[in-house]
Amino acid sequence: MIATLPIALVVNGAPRVVAVEPHHTLLEVLRDDLGLTGTKECCLVGECGACTVILDGRSVDACLVLAVEAEGLEVRTVEGLAVDGRLSALQAAFLDKGAVQCGFCIPGQLVSAQALLDEVPHPSRPEIEEGLAGNLCRCGCYEQIFEAVEATAAGEGHLTASAAPPAGANAGARSVEEGLDQ
């Protein structure tokens, strides 16, 4: 029997301490121990991108990272994109452009897109395609997903115009409920 190891990490800005088993992945710990089920489990071989999270500023497949490797690091999941319960401009753009059908891949797509925009605020279409090449969408919404990233980069976010963002929130943020009702 191998003992659990306590690890300290920062998840979506909040310090967390979790006892993990060495053979548990970051994906398992996020979903099962921390209850953050937005990050999806799918291929488990690093091909589909459904489990994409941002680890110390870089997007990674959480299924290929042991939780113990995240000791002392910062993790940002899809739950960390919204600010004060309001969708980010990127999330709003996904709704606006109809980028979501079944929705299963969307958390990973959003996190990859966020990582791309963090690094390249105004990506070209080829840069978007390359940036999201590690995220499969079985519904085939690629075009709409790319458009949503472009709209976010262009600061369009016209869905967001009606909702004044709260102070300190992402520019263009809007309420989750409002977004889902569209």
Binding site: G46, L55, S59, V60, D61, L64, A133, G134
Partner: peptide, 8 residues
Amino acid sequence: GSVQIRNR
């Protein structure tokens, strides 16, 4: 691989 793979 992909961005995610290249980052690791």
